[in-house]
């Protein structure tokens, strides 16, 4: 271990710029990955919150529909795969809600039919549920939210693809920059690596100083990223809440920053170690 530490010091002092670049690359790439992930998490949470609200389907019964029919339909709906919940709204409840919304309105009779409010599990189940409801004769009218559901699904899909593409780009940039900077440092040590091999050093012993210094670079980059993520995540959260006020989300930003920082630290550490192993292995014969 002492020998590895001494060699690691030499590895660093031979080519400090490459390890400084490695640390900075680690920090910048992890930060970009962190920001994209935070946006992704917020948008996903927001989509979840808003999704159940505007995707709800309302089915209105014929006046002639009796309680037995309604109970049977509720049971059938509840057995469907894509249904989250079914709520029965009697004509009296519907009128009460209407009057709460429009207090000045007065009616002698209740013109409202009984209805069902169906919450789908996700937007992809909306069409199937509507199709099912439209096939029932005692249902007079179904409020069709399938168009909204399709648009919603498309937006989510586009955002998902965009997010994944950005993450892949940042990951590739990270791997490329880290492996290049480590590769330069290893290349400058190729003579020493060849001497170590001929002196009977194990591959592990040869790799250890490079792994040590790459780990330190990754940890410094990762810790800096974790510290910077704290205020940035809070700021992004506030920005999101003010910009997309119609889909509020409740989130512990400190916990999110901590978890994300820790995950990214491990990712940075892992990539640096793997890059080091590959770079040194190129010179081991």
């Amino acid at each position: 271990m002492a020998s590895s530490l001494r060699e690691a010091k030499q590895v660093f002092s031979r080519n400090p710029a490459s390890y400084i670049v490695c640390t900075i690359s680690c920090f910048i790439s992890l930060f970009c990955i962190g920001i994209v992930s935070v946006f992704g998490i917020f948008v996903y949470q927001g989509a979840q919150a808003v999704g159940t609200r505007f995707l709800n389907i309302t089915a209105f019964f014929e006046k002639t529909a009796n309680h037995e029919d309604i109970n049977q339909i509720i049971l059938s709906l509840e057995s469907l795969e894509g249904v989250q919940s079914v709520q029965y709204v009697s004509p009296e409840e519907a009128l009460q809600w209407l009057q709460e919304e429009y207090p000045d309105m007065e009616t002698a009779t209740n013109p409202l039919p009984s209805s069902l409010r169906i919450e789908p599990k996700s937007s992809k189940h909306v069409s199937d549920i509507i199709e099912f409801l439209q096939s029932i004769s005692s249902i007079e009218y179904v409020e069709d939210t399938s168009e909204a559901a399709t648009s919603y699904s498309n937006i989510i899909r586009i955002m998902l693809i965009l997010g994944i593409a950005l993450l892949i780009i940042f990951f590739l940039a990270f791997i490329f920059s880290v492996s290049s900077s480590i590769g330069i440092s290893v290349y400058s040590f190729r003579k020493e690596i060849s001497i170590m091999q001929l002196l009977g050093a194990t591959p592990g012993t040869i790799r250890s100083p490079f792994l040590l210094i790459a780990s330190v670079s990754a940890i410094i980059g990762g810790v800096c990223n974790a510290f910077v993520l704290f205020p940035v995540v809070r700021y992004v959260y506030q920005f999101y809440q003010s910009f997309l006020f119609f889909s509020p989300i409740a989130m512990n930003t400190q916990l999110l920053s901590l978890q994300l920082g820790a995950v990214l630290l491990w990712i940075g550490f892992f990539i640096s170690i793997v890059s080091s192993i590959f770079s040194v292995n190129k010179h081991i014969r």
Partner: peptide
């Protein structure tokens, strides 16, 4: 291949260009 260091430990090698570590 993983154990080739064991072979090298049985052999001493000397080269024309010395191959010493400068630092």
């Amino acid at each position: 291949q993983k154990k080739k260091h064991l072979v090298r430990r049985k052999i001493g090698v000397v080269f024309q260009d010395f191959n010493l570590i400068d630092y």
